[in-house]
């Protein structure tokens, strides 16, 4: 009876296998948003690495005679300054290109810090369980109960606003999500045969964790980390926007947006373009993250 039900509900098989090219094409189509995201991220990387060559002007180069020029396509704009100039005559386009360095540096470093803290705690919580798990889970609850922005702002206020301290503040506030994910994955894995086998062979805990458990959870961590980079970039810009981040005149997108806010009644482009840069970068990284998730584990597809 049971098997009969299964037989009838099974989907009919395709009679002919689609050609190899066609299958590749379907796969690419499915992943095209991810590829688009990857391209955006590549563009961002290129901007950061080649800023000195790509930017037509220096990020601090002031030309007071041509201050507050509109973008090139508007009346009064010049091709000299593609996206216009700011209040002291700096080229907005060049500053945005240089700003990608700050955003990427903060985003990547902060997430590396988050992964280091979060994964180690998650491994410990999931593997040892008991009081280790309880106390780590309690810490996670405390961190999640803290309003992020106030904690990060207070941390930066304590440490002083600098690139390094922003990274520390974002790293110290963002790890709980990694702990949660790692812990759940480890709980699933720790009683599986291959781990039991490793344990019965008297492998050290360190070896089991690093050689047997960690490789299995890395894909999930990688996908999560990608999305968290986007979040860290947005958060850095927010801290800079609130005046507790990267300090002017360093070209951080958030700080540029904060400066642009003072001019928003007349010179809208000063706030619009730095924000657009943040938005596009975060969108690209998120698309890449979604694509990676589909590639690594189709079951995790958001639906």
């Amino acid at each position: 009876m049971q098997t009969g039900v299964l037989e009838t509900t099974r989907q009919p098989r395709a009679l002919t296998r689609p050609s190899r090219i066609r299958r590749l094409w379907t796969k690419i189509c499915r992943l095209r948003m991810g590829i688009l995201g990857g391209l955006i991220l590549l563009g961002l990387l290129a901007a950061a690495l080649l800023a000195n060559w790509l930017a037509p002007h220096g990020p601090f180069e002031q030309d007071i005679m041509s201050r507050l020029q509109p973008p090139a396509w508007m009346p009064g704009g010049s091709s000299e300054h593609l996206l216009g100039t700011d209040g002291v005559g700096r080229d907005l386009f060049s500053r945005i290109i240089h700003g990608s360095r700050i955003s990427l540096a903060v985003g990547l470093s902060a997430v590396i810090l988050q992964v280091l803290i979060g994964v180690i705690l998650g491994l410990a919580a999931g593997y040892y369980r008991g009081w280790v798990d309880s106390s780590i889970s309690f810490m996670v609850n405390v961190m999640l109960g803290f309003p992020f922005i106030l904690l990060a702002m207070s941390l930066v206020a304590v440490l002083g606003p600098s690139l390094q301290n922003i990274i520390i503040a974002l790293g110290l506030t963002g790890w709980p999500i990694f702990t949660r994910v790692t812990r759940v994955e480890v709980l699933k894995l720790r009683d599986m045969e291959f781990v039991l086998a490793a344990r019965s062979l008297a492998f050290s805990t360190l070896r089991i964790m690093s050689k047997h458990i960690l490789p299995n959870i890395l894909p999930s961590i990688l996908v999560l980390a990608t999305v968290e980079v986007a979040r860290a970039i947005i958060r850095e810009s927010l801290l800079s926007f609130l005046g507790l981040g990267i300090q002017p005149p360093t070209p951080s997108w958030g700080a540029m947006l904060a400066e642009g806010r003072d001019y928003m009644l007349m010179q809208w482009w000063l706030a619009a373009f730095p924000g657009l840069a943040i938005f596009l970068s975060a969108l690209g990284i998120n698309l890449l993250g979604d694509g990676l998730r589909d590639l690594i584990d189709p079951h995790l597809r958001k639906d």
């Binding site: 986007a230 947005i234 810009s237 927010l238 926007f241 947006l257 642009g260 806010r261 928003m264 706030a271 619009a272 924000g275 943040i278 938005f279 596009l280 975060a282 969108l283 990284i285 998120n286 698309l287 979604d290």
Partner: peptide, 14 residues
């Protein structure tokens, strides 16, 4: 997707 990537304060200013 767009909402996830949108900095809230930028949206406000726009």
């Amino acid at each position: 997707l767009m909402g996830q990537a949108m900095p809230l304060y930028w949206l406000g200013i726009m």
